[in-house]
């Protein structure tokens, strides 16, 4: 579904991605791991077309994305930092994005699930960080695209909301969606991910299922396994 070949990107002198190759075909959850500054967000933003790569190509569902925009209707994106126009109300934001996207949206069940009803008539600038993240989640999940890209989805969520989010992801995976998730929460990866992509200094150091990762490194948890891979390449 997502095919990335030889992706390069530098910001000034700083090389962020240097030759990323990725092919994600199976529906399910693909976790992108890597330390801060390893290029995870840049990779995600390249897929979304928010960052223009210097070299290489990305295609989604067989269609190259360079310079295109319509393919974004097949993507649901959850940004890392939830920033919204401050003088809109929560309900208005949902309606506005629905109107701009021209796709049927169902925010109500999600609003209920995340307990956002009391905030619908509040201005976005008055919300707390966790509530913003919930609004962010509703915005992403109120459509049903085939591909979801979530950048640190768990930031600021309370346990209840986290459980609701996991359920939501499982339901969507069940109906055949593909998730690309960046996270630093390893238990979440072990619990849910089908495959792991380990990014370091702008290169893919490992791509494959959790099982392959464990057999390759002889470890039984993601954290030490990832550390082992990083160490192996640095020796």
């Amino acid at each position: 579904m997502i095919e990335i070949t030889n992706l390069h990107k530098r910001f000034g002198k700083n090389t962020v991605l240097s030759g990323v190759n990725l092919s994600l075909q199976e529906p399910g959850i693909h976790a992108v791991l890597g330390p801060n500054g390893s290029g995870k967000t840049t990779l995600i933003k390249s897929i979304l077309g928010m960052v223009c790569p210097d070299q290489g190509s990305i295609s989604i569902g067989g269609q190259p994305t360079g310079g295109q925009w319509l393919y974004r209707k097949d993507l649901g994106y959850l940004p890392q930092i939830a920033e919204f126009p401050g003088n809109l109300k929560v309900g208005e934001l949902f309606r506005m994005i629905e109107d701009l996207r021209q796709q049927p949206a169902a925010p109500e069940p999600l609003v209920e699930r995340f307990g956002l009803q009391p905030f619908l008539n509040k201005k976005l600038s008055t919300l707390s960080g966790g509530t913003r993240q919930k609004v962010n989640l509703v915005l992403t999940f109120m459509f049903e695209p085939p591909v979801y890209i979530l950048d640190e989805p768990t930031t600021g969520l309370d346990p209840g909301a986290l459980i609701a989010l996991k359920e939501l992801i499982r339901t969507r995976v069940g109906s055949g969606a593909l998730f690309l998730i960046t996270t630093h929460i390893m238990p979440l990866v072990e619990e849910m991910a089908q495959s792991v992509i380990y990014l370091l200094e702008g290169k893919v150091y490992f791509e494959g299922s959790l099982k392959t990762l464990y057999t390759l490194t002889g470890k039984t948890h993601v954290e030490p396994a990832i550390a082992a891979i990083a160490a192996r390449h640095h020796v």
Partner: peptide
């Protein structure tokens, strides 16, 4: 002051 709004729009199926 509308950078957040812009960022939100950029991820939607709208021409830049």
């Amino acid at each position: 002051s509308s950078r957040e709004f812009t960022a939100l729009l950029l991820a939607q199926p709208i021409r830049r």
